[in-house]
Amino acid sequence: MALLHSLRTPAEIARTIGANAKAIRLERNFSRETLASRSGVSAQTISRLENEGQVTLSNLILVAVALGCTEGFDQLFKKKAPATLEDLKKPVRKRGTQ
Rank of each mutant, 00 (worst) to 15 (best):
G72K: 05
I13N: 01
A14D: 09
V63H: 00
L4D: 07
I61N: 00
R93T: 15
V65R: 08
I46C: 00
K80F: 03
D74Y: 11
L26D: 09
L3C: 13
R32L: 11
S39G: 00
A2E: 09
F30A: 02
K80S: 09
Q44Y: 09
L67Y: 00
T56D: 09
V55P: 04
S42Y: 03
R8D: 07
L4R: 06
R95D: 11
A21P: 06
T34G: 03
F73N: 08
F77Y: 08
N29S: 10
V41H: 02
L67S: 00
L85P: 08
S39F: 01
Q44W: 06
A43Y: 03
A2C: 12
T56M: 04
T45N: 06
N20D: 14
P10N: 04
L60D: 08
A2R: 07
I46W: 00
A11F: 12
I13F: 05
F73G: 01
L60K: 04
R8A: 07
S39E: 01
S37G: 13
V92T: 10
V92H: 09
T56S: 08
G96P: 11
T70H: 01
S37Q: 10
N29T: 14
H5C: 15
T45M: 15
R32G: 05
H5M: 14
K89P: 14
G18M: 06
D74I: 14
I61F: 07
T16H: 09
I13C: 00
Q75V: 15
F30S: 04
L62Y: 08
K22W: 05
A83F: 11
K79W: 03
F30T: 06
K89E: 10
I24W: 05
K79F: 03
A11N: 12
C69F: 08
K80T: 15
A2I: 15
F77N: 07
F73I: 15
R38L: 14
V63R: 01
S58K: 13
T34R: 06
T45P: 08
K94I: 08
Q44G: 14
A64I: 14
L49A: 00
T70E: 07
Q98C: 07
A83S: 10
R48A: 05
T56P: 06
V65C: 08
L85C: 08
D87W: 02
T45E: 14
E50Y: 02
N51P: 13
I17S: 04
L49M: 02
R95F: 08
G40C: 03
I17P: 05
S58Y: 13
L57K: 07
S31G: 03
S37N: 13
K80P: 15
K78H: 10
L26P: 10
A81E: 12
N29R: 12
L3T: 11
V41L: 02
A66E: 11
E50T: 02
K90W: 03
A81V: 15
L3N: 13
N59P: 13
T70Q: 11
Q98P: 15
E27W: 11
S31C: 06
I61R: 05
